[in-house]
Amino acid sequence: MADNVTPRVRVPRDAAAGDTITIKTLISHPMESGQRKDSDGNTIPRSIINRFTCDFNGESVMEMILEPAISTNPFIEFQAVVPESGTFAFTWYDDDGSVYEESKDIAVS
């Protein structure tokens, strides 16, 4: 597992039913591309977050497949519709098998 991987998510605390809201996520990760060489000329092995998913109450909002061309500390901004109060689940999948999770509740009036 890459060191110090910290997911951050910004979701509004509340919304009206059926509202479209903006979600921003940022996760600290080197996203080692597999294209770089160390000072001895050896290729540094690829180590990236390769997939991200966002679900709301078990239903999919968005899935993203990430390639080595995504910048260090991947930032993703997208939109979701919230039909009811519930919980967003965010999951990042690392090349090394690690899974990083975060969740956020939203109150819908």
């Binding site: 679900d55 709301f56 999919s60 061309a69 997208f78």
Partner: peptide
């Protein structure tokens, strides 16, 4: 780029828009 793939977004039923932003390497 050395490999052209950058990212793919698959939108689910609760996507608020078929749109997304990210930061990429060129």
């Amino acid at each position: 780029n050395p490999t052209p793939d950058v990212a793919t977004f698959n939108f689910g039923p609760l996507a608020g828009a078929q749109a997304a932003s990210t930061r990429i390497r060129l």
